[in-house]
Amino acid sequence: MVIITSRNAPCQSFMIHTISGSDAKERIQTIRQLRHPNLTENVEVYTSSDPGYSVISEFMPTSLLHLCRAPIYPNEPQLSSILYQSLLIPLKVLTGLEFLLNCSLYYKRLSCVNVFVNFASEVKIGDIENCRRSGDIAALATSFGRLTMKLMDKERVETASFGLKHPNRWSNEAINLFTSIIITFNVKKLLAHAFFLKKNQEKLV
């Protein structure tokens, strides 16, 4: 992935990456059909000299991986905002996942690397071309569970069995949400979880 700057708008940056392989055309067709506030926006698609495509998308300055590597843990309003935006649509990772599932698309490799955060405190899912028309909801549940575990416990490696070394750092609501994610993954029920009453995007600095 490369960061580029527009000649017409020098202050505006974009990300560019390539998509190749036997299924490249199908993957490009997928991203052309998807637009959502919690998905990174793809601005242009070009055919490249090599077999494949170059995709220019909006610039997202950081990812959840940076947050996980930082010594300071997110507080509960920040954790709530990140997970809620990731799961839903205009509400982030859960929102974005719900939108993709409604489009019959499965994101099996969701991780801290491909969930981005911009300076407006918006959380967006990237690498949408990796979604597939068929898949196992259990694989999505596992990847989202591991993403949540990494945000709540920096000492755990993503491949470790589910668990938290220091559950005392979190409230009962946060622990209950984590348990719900790894035991009964249901996007609609998770979005209605009491923990998300704490979300506050303005606090996600």
Rank of each mutant, 00 (worst) to 15 (best):
Y106K: 03
Y106P: 13
Y107T: 00
Y107F: 12
Y107Q: 05
Y107I: 00
Y107D: 03
K108A: 10
K108R: 15
K108V: 07
K108S: 15
R109D: 09
R109P: 08
R109A: 11
R109V: 07
L110D: 05
L110E: 04
L110R: 11
L110N: 09
S111R: 07
S111P: 01
C112N: 04
C112D: 02
C112Q: 06
V113W: 03
N114H: 06
N114P: 00
N114L: 05
F116P: 01
F116Q: 00
F116E: 01
V117N: 00
V117L: 05
N118F: 03
F119G: 02
A120T: 10
A120D: 15
A120H: 09
A120K: 10
E122C: 15
E122M: 12
E122Q: 14
V123Y: 02
K124F: 02
K124S: 03
K124G: 01
I125P: 03
I125W: 05
I125D: 02
G126L: 04
G126A: 10
G126H: 15
G126S: 10
G126Q: 14
G126P: 06
G126F: 04
D127G: 14
D127L: 07
D127K: 15
I128F: 03
E129T: 13
E129I: 06
N130I: 09
N130Y: 13
C131V: 15
C131H: 09
C131N: 10
C131A: 12
R132P: 11
R133M: 11
S134G: 09
S134T: 10
D136R: 14
D136H: 14
D136F: 12
I137N: 11
I137H: 12
I137D: 13
A138L: 12
A139Q: 14
A139Y: 14
L140K: 08
L140G: 13
L140M: 13
L140F: 13
L140D: 14
A141Y: 14
A141K: 10
A141C: 10
T142M: 09
T142V: 08
F144D: 06
F144M: 07
G145Q: 11
G145C: 11
G145H: 07
R146T: 13
L147F: 05
T148E: 02
T148M: 09
K150S: 12
K150A: 07
L151E: 01
M152I: 08
D153G: 05
D153F: 00
D153P: 00
K154W: 01
K154L: 09
E155I: 05
E155S: 09
R156C: 08
V157P: 07
E158S: 13
E158V: 13
T159V: 13
T159G: 12
T159W: 09
A160M: 11
A160N: 10
S161H: 12
S161C: 11
F162L: 08
G163Q: 06
G163N: 07
G163P: 01
L164Y: 08
L164W: 08
K165G: 05
K165V: 03
K165N: 12
K165I: 04
P167Y: 05
N168K: 11
N168H: 08
R169S: 03
R169L: 06
R169V: 03
R169D: 00
R169N: 00
W170N: 02
W170E: 02
W170P: 01
S171A: 06
S171L: 11
S171V: 06
N172H: 05
N172D: 04
N172A: 05
E173Q: 05
E173Y: 04
A174D: 00
A174H: 04
I175K: 05
N176F: 12
N176P: 02
N176R: 04
N176C: 06
